[in-house]
Amino acid sequence: MGVTEIVAEIGTWIWFILAGVLLIGELALPGAQFIWLGIAALATGLAVPLFELGWQGQLVLYAVLALVTLLLGRRMFPRGPKASDRPFLNRRTEALVGRVFVLGEPIAGGVGHVKVDDTVWRVTGEDSPAGARVVVVGVDGAMLKVRPEDTAI
């Protein structure tokens, strides 16, 4: 028994079976691609009895519907991260990079502290006296990397 005989014997049910397999595959695998192919198979299964298509026409119809549903799906649900209006929400230390602060106590031995708003942060950088202005140039965990404001990068 060849493929054409199997398809002819199963009839339009093959499209509903394929739709079920693809929709179950969508549940098992991430990516939101199988859902559109499953919808195309379901639509093909519904259209075949209306238009009495042969297996070649069914495949062409499915291919066209699959392409259309994939394109519509990508247009309705674009991929990629959305730009946030609060990009530093959970990355407070990164928001401090580039800001200038005044040392409340000197940096000695490469380590010191600076007050930022109501919080005291540990800083690393070249030794500087209390009252010196420093620029935050990086972050290492909860420690800020600073350099004196008047030095070039």
Rank of each mutant, 00 (worst) to 15 (best):
D85I: 04
D150F: 04
T44Y: 11
A47S: 10
F88G: 05
L18W: 02
I10E: 06
L59W: 08
T119R: 05
L103N: 01
V48D: 09
V60K: 06
E26V: 09
G131S: 04
G110K: 05
W121M: 02
A19I: 08
Q33G: 07
L72P: 00
R122A: 15
H113S: 06
R74N: 12
L67S: 11
L23S: 04
R79P: 07
R74K: 10
G2L: 13
G109P: 10
Y62P: 01
S128D: 02
I17T: 04
A95P: 01
E94T: 02
A40R: 07
I10R: 05
W55S: 13
G11T: 09
G141P: 01
I39V: 14
A47E: 04
T124S: 13
F77E: 04
L70K: 00
G109V: 12
L59R: 09
V135I: 04
L37S: 15
R86N: 13
V21R: 01
A43D: 15
F16R: 06
F77D: 03
I39A: 11
I24C: 14
V111S: 07
A132M: 01
R75D: 10
R147F: 09
L37P: 05
A66M: 14
I6Q: 15
W13T: 15
E52N: 07
T4S: 08
L37F: 07
R133A: 14
L50T: 14
Y62G: 02
G98A: 13
G38H: 03
P148D: 04
P49C: 13
W55E: 06
G45P: 00
A8F: 07
T4C: 06
V97S: 08
L61E: 08
L46R: 10
I39Y: 15
I153Y: 11
V146I: 10
I153L: 12
V116C: 03
G38K: 00
G20H: 02
L103F: 08
T119L: 11
T12D: 12
V111N: 13
A142R: 11
G20I: 11
G20P: 10
V123Y: 01
L59C: 05
V116K: 03
G38L: 07
